[in-house]
Design a protein around this nucleic acid. Sequence first.
DNA 1: GGAGAATAGTTGTATAAACGACAAAGCTTC
DNA 2: GAAGCTTTGTCGTTTATACAACTATTCTCC
Lengths: 243, 243
Amino acid sequence: MAIDKSSFVPPYYQLAQILERQIRAGDYRPGEALPSEAELSEKYGLSRMTVRRSLSQLARAGLIRTERGKGTFVSRPELDRAVFIMEEFHKEAAARGLTSSVRLLEARLVPAPEKAAGKLQVPAGTKVLYIRRSLLAGGEPLAYDRKYLCYDRGRPILENELQYQALPEMVEKHAEALPISSKMVLQATVLNDEEARALRVAPGSPAFLLEQVLLAGDGRPVGWGWCLYRGDRYQLTSVSTAI
Amino acid sequence: MAIDKSSFVPPYYQLAQILERQIRAGDYRPGEALPSEAELSEKYGLSRMTVRRSLSQLARAGLIRTERGKGTFVSRPELDRAVFIMEEFHKEAAARGLTSSVRLLEARLVPAPEKAAGKLQVPAGTKVLYIRRSLLAGGEPLAYDRKYLCYDRGRPILENELQYQALPEMVEKHAEALPISSKMVLQATVLNDEEARALRVAPGSPAFLLEQVLLAGDGRPVGWGWCLYRGDRYQLTSVSTAI
DNA sequence: GGAGAATAGTTGTATAAACGACAAAGCTTC
DNA sequence: GAAGCTTTGTCGTTTATACAACTATTCTCC
């Protein structure tokens, strides 16, 4: 339980691992205080700044919590709390060893329906780009994407482009403002006839419904739509709070 | 665009905000390099360590990425990527202004079914604690929880306890080993008759299915089960990558 | 005994300095 | 011209120091 300064693993990381093991082994119980930074510094022969770096790493992972003037304390594990990360479609498919592709089903300029106009903050009836796409993984449709995008008159719609590009690149090319962030809401739903047909499953099958709003750097919405993920082929796994 | 050293906001945070604004405004485009740490240090009158602290904060938020020997670069926004956080039930209900409670439907010792025995890594038929609970928010059932827990013979089952406690405390009291982490998988599903009755909705309604494995400090599973969340009352919102 | 002041202990922030590791460009040599 | 070496610039890590801000305790004074 000492720091090996000749190791390739930097000391701050070694100390973080040592402390994590001790916490997981129960040497320090939830609520209990860890030794002060000065004590750890002396015990392991590291400067206080290095000790602080180890501690901040553990704090970021949620294992400990620091209180100014009081000390550093072990956090109570929050078993009922989970973090799920939804990766970009192609990246996720690649990680699962599947070849992924996109099939463009429809792309045309339409007058914005009332709801879309509201979400995009444009007058109802404004011409917007409406696209429908199938996201395929391993040859099968895994997701069905429908979106309204604010359209820049200067840039023509090239269906070939839409067909093969990921959403960010696609929007970048055809919208006026560059989207820089997005707001998403995830729901559980059942598929209606049209959606089920697009995903090649029975109507009434379960699916994830991901509503997505694309925002420009100044906060203006530039895109809105939903993406449906087949419930029998898609699941989210909680991220371990490893360091 | 200078650092106010007399402000209550520490300089490292001010610099991070300045750089974030510049990136969002497009002063530095995705892929482009930021000034080197030495240049920022000189420009803003801060030490290199302080500049590094600002940069590491932006890097953690995903706005920039550093490469040793090369420089610091603005990341491409990953519009299709999202982080969802599922909070502990009572905390989430409280945040939405609802009073929450738990109704214990069943709690008894049963021989572990094959699948549960496998998940809990005990011989099939081992006596385990099986519980069914309704999680209520605003007087309505919002979730339906079924779990198998490794049971410590020494500790009696007190139904009153199970009725009112959150899962972590509950397991803590009745299992041999203290669970310290959990692994969860989130799926979209449709409710069967029994589940629909428990949640007071129609069979075939959509729901989130959260499979949960509770793990002790040494990695041994001590609990396993599923929690169903009504699809019409529950949704997950992506966390903004704010700093 | 109680109120307030002083003190010790703790984390939070900032600085200067040094060295290491890596990348790219320029230079030398053959 | 090409291969290898050198130089320069960049981020990565650690140290030592100083001070600020906050908490809890102890001491002093009334």
